[in-house]
Amino acid sequence: MARILAVDDSVSMRGMVAFTLRGAGHEVTEAEDGQLALDAARGSTFDLVLADVNMPVMDGIAMVRELRAMAQYQGVPILMLTTESHTDKKMEGKAAGATGWLVKPFDPDQLLATVKRVLG
């Protein structure tokens, strides 16, 4: 299936996301902040990146900006996992180059549906 990079500083959220996606047969790499995610992304190519917005060291928005600057991540779907239902974070993420978002809380089914939506 797809190679997915899951980025979240919360162990439980990341664990839930990774667990759910692995259960659906995806290969998941985990990273706990934007900087570590970039390190992982440089060494590999992913079909999809799921990233939290608020993270220490490097937040999700800065990470998206950096990823999009890398040639191999042009066009790769990057979804922001965000609790903000208000639009500013979504729009900030979009402006940085995110593909879309998944609003927390989401359950495993919603996660899988969204991932399926992006990966086709």
Binding site: S12, M13, M16, N54, T83
Partner: peptide, 15 residues
Amino acid sequence: IFRAAHSIKGGSATF
């Protein structure tokens, strides 16, 4: 502080 509150909010809704 904000990040911690934010994570708790997201996690508690999710879980």
